[in-house]
Design a protein around this nucleic acid. Structure first.
Lengths: 230, 230
DNA sequence: CGCACCCCTTTGTGATCACATAATATAAAG
DNA sequence: CTTTATATTATGTGATCACAAAGGGGTGCG
C-alpha cells in the first residue's frame, strides 16, 4: 500500500470495524481518483470496476453514487459518471472556498492542540519539505494532506470538516496530474508560520498563515493545465 | 403540492427530464426531512419508506445513501439512518460555515444580477415579510430559502452552491420544528439592506448584510430547543 | 421483582436478473 | 471514401432473492 493511500484514508470516516464491502470499494476508488487513475471526462462503468475489484456491481454502484454526492465524480447527462475536468473557474472557486473554510477550521482547532500535536505537525512539515526536496509528488501531496487534516481534525468539527474533505477530493486529483507532468518546482508553503502561530496561541496569525499557504500553492498553477469550459 | 415543496426543489439539480425513480424518491424524502416528518434519532427504514412510496427498496436505498452523503441524514453505528439531532455545537458550526460561505456566494453573484433579478428578489422579500406577519412558518421558510438561493444562484458557482445547499439541508429541519413549536416571534432580517447594496453594486455592503442576516436569525434560538450531546 | 437467555422478526447488505436506453460496430448506399 | 441506416453490444436502473446481524419480546430462572 503506497504512502498516499494511508494519508488519503485520513479523509472521512475510517472506521475499521465498519468494513462493509461498499466502504472498501469506496476507499479504493477514491484513492484511484486522487492518484489520477481515471482520465477526466472518460466515463467509468459500474460493471467494469466491479470486475476489476472482484465484486458484484452492487457495492460499486453505491460507492460511485456516494462519490458523486461528494463531488469527487460527476454525473453526466447520460447517467454515466466520470472524473470532472478542471476549469479555471472551478479551480478559483475551490480556492475561494478553501480560503473561507480552512482558516476557520484551524482557528477552531487551535484551543485543542497541545505540545504533542505541535511536535507531530512539525514532523509532518519536515516530511513535506523532504517531498519537495526530492521532487516526490506522492510524498509531498500525502504529507501536505496529512499536515492540514491532522491540524484541522483537532477542532472536532462535524460540519466543516466534511466540507473541507470534499474540497480536497475535488482539488487533489488535478494537482496530482499537474505536478506529475510539470514537476513540483520550487513550492513554498506557510507551514513554519502556522506552527509558530500555534505555539504562540495566536488565532489570527494561524488563520492568516493558512490563507497564505493556500494562495501560495495555488497561484503557481500555469493556465496550460486547465481545460476550456465546464 | 405545498408551497414549501416548490421552494425546496430549488435546492440541487432539478432536471425535469432526468426523472429517474431514485431522483423522485430523493426529492420526496428530502422534503419530508425538511418539514420535520421524521423524528430526529428515530431510524428510518428502507423497506418502510419503499412501502410508503410504493416502490421497491432499491431507489430508496440510493436516495438514503445520497442524503447521508449530503449530511441531511446520519449513518448510525448499526448501519441504520436517522435524522440527526441538533446540538448547540453543530448549530454554531453550521452558522460559522454559513457566515463563511454565503457572503462569498452573494459577492460572486452580484455582477450577474440585473434589474429584473432585483425586482424578483424584492417580491420574494415581500412574501417573506408576509410570512412573518401571518406567523406562517411554511411560507416564511420557503420564501426565505427562495430569496437566498435565487440570489446566490446568479453566481453560477458549481462548488460553493452545493456546500450551501448541504448547510441548509442540515439547518432547515431544525428551524422548522423549532418555529412550529415556539412560533416565528419577531423575526428580523437584513433583506432590505441586501437589496439596496445590490442596487448600489456594493459588494462589501452586500456581504455584510448577508452576514448579519444569518447572525440575526440565529441568535434568537433559545437553548431549550437543542439536545444535549452529539 | 429484576435480569439473563432464547426465539422470532425486522433490517441492511450483497448478488442476480430483467429491461429500456445509449453507445458502438457493421453494413449498405451515395 | 464518406455518410447514413441498422443491428449488436454495453450500461444504468429497478426489482427480487438470500443471508447474516441486530432488535424486540416473551419466558424462565435467580
Amino acid at each position: 500500500m503506497p504512502s498516499l493511500a494511508e494519508s488519503i484514508s485520513l479523509i472521512s470516516g475510517d472506521r475499521p470495524d465498519h468494513l462493509t464491502l461498499q466502504e472498501q470499494v469506496y476507499q479504493r476508488i477514491r484513492l484511484d481518483i486522487m492518484t489520477g487513475k481515471f482520465i477526466p471526462g472518460k466515463s467509468v462503468t459500474i460493471r467494469g470496476l466491479a470486475e476489476t475489484l472482484g465484486t458484484s456491481p452492487m457495492p460499486v454502484r453505491e460507492a460511485l453514487r456516494r462519490l458523486v454526492a461528494e463531488r469527487a465524480l460527476q454525473l453526466l447527462p447520460n447517467r454515466r459518471v466520470s472524473v470532472p475536468a478542471m476549469t479555471i473557474e472551478k479551480y478559483s472557486e475551490l480556492t475561494a472556498a478553501r480560503v473561507a473554510l480552512e482558516p476557520l477550521a484551524a482557528e477552531r482547532a487551535l484551543p485543542h492542540m497541545d505540545d504533542a500535536m505541535v511536535a507531530k505537525l512539525t514532523r509532518l512539515d519536515a516530511e513535506v519539505d523532504e517531498g519537495i526536496r526530492l521532487g516526490d509528488v506522492e510524498l509531498y501531496l500525502s504529507k501536505n494532506l496529512e499536515f492540514h487534516f491532522t491540524m484541522y481534525r483537532c477542532g472536532e468539527s462535524q460540519v466543516i470538516m466534511p466540507m473541507i474533505e470534499s474540497l480536497w477530493l475535488q482539488m487533489v486529483p488535478f494537482l496530482y496530474l499537474a505536478m506529475k507532468r510539470k514537476g513540483l518546482g520550487a513550492i513554498v508553503d506557510q507551514h513554519q508560520e502556522a506552527l509558530s502561530a500555534i505555539r504562540n496561541r495566536d488565532a489570527a496569525a494561524l488563520a492568516q498563515s493558512i490563507r497564505l499557504d493556500i494562495l501560495d500553492g495555488v497561484n503557481r498553477m500555469p493556465e496550460s493545465e486547465f481545460v476550456e469550459e465546464s
